[in-house]
């Protein structure tokens, strides 16, 4: 099996300050990797570098494309990278309003990626939208409502539907459950877990919430001050942390 994504020595500087550095890993098809660390640890910087939202100061992000095989997405032409962003890649933002068009109906939000890749049959697009609303547990009769009329949890589920409708192979998620109530988080996590398995998605999830990665991630990368300090199987890293920082992180979580 070939890795879906090969990340080699990614480095991002903010002037003299390190955003992230020396980050390398392989992600295989169907694998979910969590990146944890406190605010300022460089985890979001890394995610945005990987997704092409930030320019890097070095390194490679090699993605196994459908038509050309492994290609470094950092040196890809912009049209090609943006096409990837609408087809095989998806990005779920922490704040749904960053990932949704708030003035467009739920159906239009879901249909946008289909239309962006050439969908020109209204009936088919709408049927897909309704199907996806159902998969993310939103009532079909909300298809023509704007996201501004939705609760925070629904907005986040709509954002997920909008991203997954084109059947991407790699999903980047930035604190997907941040800012949601605990009960709403549980529902979202359960949903994401089911979709990841059904669709065989690979995902990279940035979060500071260790409960989230325990439920969703196969493996973990722990970051501190822009460096990766520990990697491994999720339950092993959480139950038998090796690095001082990971031990501190794990022991800081309140037990319920």
């Amino acid at each position: 099996m070939h890795p879906l994504l090969q990340v080699n020595n990614i480095r991002k500087m903010y002037g003299a300050r390190i955003g992230c550095t020396d980050v390398s890993f392989d992600l295989f098809p169907g694998e979910v990797m969590g990146i944890v660390g406190e605010s300022g640890s460089g985890k979001s910087t890394l995610l945005n570098c990987l997704a092409g939202h930030l320019d890097t100061d070095g390194g490679e992000v090699i993605f196994d494309t459908r038509d050309r095989g492994p290609v470094d997405t950092l040196t890809m032409s912009e049209p090609e990278r943006r096409m990837l962003g609408r087809t095989d890649w998806a990005f779920v933002h922490q704040h749904a309003r960053d990932g949704l068009r708030m003035s467009v109906s739920a159906g239009g939000n879901i249909g946008e990626r289909l239309m962006a890749v050439g969908g020109r049959h209204y009936g088919d697009i709408r049927a897909s939208a309704v199907d996806w609303l159902d998969r993310v547990e939103i009532e079909e009769n909300r298809v023509d409502d704007r996201p501004s009329a939705f609760s925070g949890g629904m907005q986040q589920r709509l954002q997920i539907a909008r991203n997954l409708v084109t059947g991407p192979r790699l999903v980047f998620m930035d604190e997907p459950t941040g800012g949601l109530d605990v009960s709403v988080q549980a529902r979202l996590l359960d949903l994401l877990r089911g979709l990841v398995r059904e669709m065989g998605l690979s995902a990279i999830i940035v979060t500071h919430d260790l409960a989230v990665v325990r439920l969703l991630a196969d493996r973990l990368m722990v970051m501190k001050s822009g460096h990766v300090v520990e990697t491994g199987l999720t339950d092993q890293v959480l139950d038998d942390p090796q690095h001082a920082y990971t031990q501190l992180l794990v022991s800081s979580v309140l037990q319920v």
Binding site: G232, L233, Q236, D239, D240
Partner: peptide, 9 residues
């Protein structure tokens, strides 16, 4: 048991 399961390193 945990070592065998890979839960402990």
């Amino acid at each position: 048991m945990r070592l065998i399961y890979g839960n402990y390193l």
